[in-house]
């Protein structure tokens, strides 16, 4: 499952089990579908997003983009977040 949350107080923007996380050099392109309104709302907070990838009950992976690089492809209704930070931690 993938969760996209605000850095202040963890307000949830997206929760989806349909996503892609593609390593690109030392970064990660995280993509998922979104409608235009939700995407525009997310883009307002592009530099204050934490992305959590949860697989199983015992660990989470935290990603973020230090430069706030988030793109919305209107043709495909796809958001792509280009993360340059990744931390795996136990829960």
């Amino acid at each position: 499952m993938l969760y996209v949350r605000h850095t202040v107080g963890s307000r949830l923007f997206f929760e989806t089990n349909e996503y892609q996380i593609k390593p690109v050099d030392n970064e990660w392109e995280i993509s998922f579908s979104a409608d235009k309104e939700s995407a525009n709302n997310l883009l307002q907070f592009h530099d204050e997003l934490n992305i959590f990838h949860v697989e199983g009950e015992h660990q989470k992976t935290w990603y973020y983009s230090s430069e706030g690089i988030v793109h919305f492809d209107k043709g495909n209704n796809t958001i792509s977040i280009f993360a340059d930070h990744k931390t795996v931690y136990p829960v």
Binding site: V8, S10, N50, W62, Y89, P90, V91
Partner: peptide, 9 residues
Amino acid sequence: FGIHPHREA
């Protein structure tokens, strides 16, 4: 509060 991350604060 269990283990959780923060940044830029």
